[in-house]
Design a protein around this nucleic acid. Structure first.
Lengths: 237, 237
DNA sequence: ACCTGTGAAGATTTTCACAGCA
DNA sequence: TGCTGTGAAAATCTTCACAGGT
């Protein structure tokens, strides 16, 4: 199969009068994507030359290469520590299991939680981390514990050989240099949203945003800051 | 109170022999922060000139101005739609209520959930969105519903006058141009983590990452939720 | 004819260095 | 003297335009 870049530019033959609602939704997405085509090709070129000149990209082989570049060919296996509300939600989040990161182990300290099954996986006690992570070849640890339990859980994972930690707990972790930790702050996007909103509707504020200049008037996760450049800022420009 | 930039550079008088463990942890944080001082001052300069030359920043007034620039002076009020596991977790997430975004309304369609209290707030039926959001002056809506319910919930919020939507549901939303939607994908950071890991430990891959060059060898790298993550890692210096 | 791959131009962000004030 | 504020340089990212295959 090949990806014909202008699949939607019908030539003008017979066509149904009405466009299905679901299709309209996707068309809006395509429009946005279309505006980023140059960037897309550049991005793909960074992982190598896997397209066919004059034709397009062969979907299967491109997918394979993209997956390889993203490390998805390396059989990831995720352990999730902390099965409270957030952990429970993450265990069932489609973006985890569905995109190459199967959650294969769950841990908690709460006796009420240890033993229950979530999505077919039994919750083990945190003290089992060394054994279970070894057995299931865990490569990524996700922390969804309360703040005060995060460091201990992290240490257990690292001790079990896990070298990638995704930290949802509101705590800063201390790890040795060979471990990569990424901290997720669920409120950051909220701040950004409030910031943009303050400029659009709110009272006058100093400063003016640098502005991406090129937003194509779309309303997704955006920039779209209205340029009421009230007040003064960095003098430049 | 002022912020003395070199608070830790003691002159050499009497000093305790041992440094408290908790302090050591924070010192590591300071070191990282120190490396970003130039950037920090530049960032602050964008919102205006609120420092005192030769002295530092007056903490209280700087906080006020920073909060104003971020729109936190405008009495935000958050409504959360979808009180499943994720919604429940968000309702209790310290970064929401704790940082100027009090959750003042909760909604769901599940009869088992409607009526219960979470953090002192009663869960209302989704059909109450127009009334309740109006009464409580909701300015930001957070969606934590299943994918198929997200658009309907979004429409209700917009109909109630909400112009900022933070979308945790795995669905792309259609909104008019005056509404700002930010989509949060909880798996994006996982992908980035796997990508970096693939290069450090995994087999050989083509290409080399652009590399920001300046990471001072520290292991935090926390960005927000969405994919604004900059490429760093191994390969190029 | 058409689409990829990529050097180069353009735009933006980060870092540097120093002027200016307390 | 010391620290902020900021223009200018350096680094980085994005967009453009066209060479090179098919």
């Amino acid at each position: 199969v090949t990806l014909p870049p202008q699949a939607d530019a019908e030539t003008g033959g017979t066509r149904p009068r009405t466009i299905p609602e679901a299709s309209v939704t996707r068309l809006a997405l395509y429009l946005r994507v279309l505006g980023e085509l140059a960037k897309l090709r550049k991005d793909l070129s960074y992982i190598g030359s896997y397209g066919i000149r004059g034709v397009g990209y062969e979907v299967v082989s491109l997918s394979v290469e993209l997956g390889r570049a993203l490390g998805l060919d390396q059989m990831q296996s995720v352990a999730l520590v902390g099965v409270g509300n957030l952990g429970h939600a993450l265990a069932g989040y489609p973006g985890f299991g569905g995109r190459g990161f199967p959650v294969t182990a769950l841990f908690d300290v709460d006796p009420d939680l240890v033993g229950i099954r979530i999505n077919g996986i039994v919750v083990d006690h945190v003290r089992e981390i060394p054994r279970v992570c070894g057995e299931r070849n865990v490569t990524i640890g996700v922390l969804a514990t309360p703040a005060q339990a995060a460091q201990a859980a992290c240490d257990l994972l690292v001790g079990a050989g896990v070298r990638c930690i995704l930290n949802f707990a509101p705590a800063v972790l201390q790890v040795s240099a060979d471990v990569e930790v990424r901290k997720v702050d669920l409120a950051v996007e909220l701040q950004v949203l409030a910031f943009h909103n303050a400029r659009r509707h709110g009272g006058e504020h100093p400063g003016a945003v640098a502005g991406t200049g090129g937003t194509r008037g779309h309303s997704e996760s955006g920039h779209g800051v209205n340029g009421h450049a009230v007040g003064r800022v960095g003098g430049t420009r």
